[in-house]
């Protein structure tokens, strides 16, 4: 076997091993979150309930109505945030360029809070509104960052952070003007929480994931060219603008629908890609593993927040924020030192 084939095989094998390992961890966490809680359900009972076989009283209600939607939202939102972050970071070649740092998620949040507070919407309508917010914000960033026919990665990040701050300000303003109860509801959602998720949250997210996740994985092919810079990519026969636009649209839609379903769970998009890239190694675009890392972090964070921090229940976004904020600071410090900030 040639050296080239051997190296390529080694890299593919490592990516496959990591993907399988993450999938196994995810299934284990999923089972744990269905079974563990103030009312313990044994794993065999969980499986029986999922398969529609007879179970002890209350088990069906607890598993299918209370815990399954919550766990599914966690998995799907985690995958969506992880994929969206990895797409943005790898496309713009900047670890800071994830949708939760550059304001795309903030835009979805502002739109969602507006519709919760003013129109008391929920379910599929809320999803669409949040998605619209994400798309409009991304378009704004794109327009402001556009200069002379190209969009530079660093410029995109700076403009995005600015627009994100403006959106956050708008969200705060909406909350101060809102009715207390509506504001309370919006605040819980704002922390990024899986509490009280129902099938109404699962369905739109699942439908979006069915389209967007395979789309993202297919777009991994143009991404391998775009990673090398626009000129090299064009030289290899790629349609640079079309590829970039499609990747950005898929990324924004993933971030928007995930935000609608679970709230802006902090730093999942930001952390998942780099963690997955480190696990997989090499320089290939890391998409599916990033999504799986996102889902694992969300389920683990939700489990920690619900069961391991004493009697009080913390939303998953609080837990992930505690991990993500130091990482952001570390990245800012080291990126400036090595001069790779842009």
């Amino acid at each position: 076997m040639s050296v080239v084939a051997a190296t390529r095989r080694h890299e593919s094998r490592r990516a496959r091993t990591v993907t399988i390992g993450l999938a196994v961890a995810l299934v284990a966490l999923f089972a744990l979150s269905l079974s563990y809680g103030s009312f313990q359900v044994s794993l065999p009972d969980v499986v029986r309930s999922l398969l529609g076989q007879p179970t002890p009283p209350q088990v069906d209600y607890i598993v299918q109505t209370l815990r399954l939607p919550r766990a599914l939202v966690g998995v799907l939102a985690g995958i969506a945030f992880g994929l969206a972050g990895a797409i943005f970071q790898q496309l713009l070649r900047n670890p800071l360029a994830s949708p939760d740092v550059i304001g795309v998620t903030s835009g979805a949040t502002t739109a969602a809070v507006l519709s919760i507070v003013v129109f008391s919407t929920s379910g599929p309508v809320l999803s669409l509104v949040a998605l619209g917010g994400a798309l409009i914000t991304a378009l704004l960033i794109y327009l402001f960052a556009w200069r002379g026919g190209s969009v530079g990665g660093y410029r995109f990040v700076l403009v995005g952070i600015g627009i994100g701050a403006a959106m956050a300000g708008l969200t705060s303003f909406l909350l101060t003007r809102a009715d207390v109860r509506a504001a309370q509801e919006a605040l819980i959602w704002l922390a990024g929480s899986l509490n009280g998720r129902t099938w109404d949250n699962v369905v739109p997210l699942a439908i979006a994931s069915l389209i967007l996740v395979p789309g993202a994985v297919l777009l991994g092919r143009p991404l391998t060219g775009l990673q090398l810079g626009d000129d090299v990519a064009r030289g290899l026969g790629l349609h640079v603008e079309r590829g970039r636009l499609l990747l950005l649209i898929v990324g924004v839609c993933l971030a928007g629908t995930a935000t609608a379903a679970a709230g802006p769970i902090s730093y999942i998009a930001f952390m998942s890609g780099p963690i997955a890239a480190r696990m997989v190694g090499g320089g290939r675009p890391v998409l599916l593993p990033a999504g799986l890392v996102g889902a694992v972090i969300v389920l683990a964070g939700d489990f920690i927040g619900s069961h391991l921090l004493g009697p009080a229940q913390f939303p998953v976004g609080v837990v992930t924020g505690v991990i993500g904020a130091p990482y952001l600071l570390w990245l800012l410090a080291t990126a400036n030192r090595t001069g790779r900030g842009g």
Partner: peptide, 16 residues
Amino acid sequence: ILPQGPIAPDGITVAD
């Protein structure tokens, strides 16, 4: 075409 200043993604191997 080999343009000026092509970008190698972090961690990419020569074979890749």
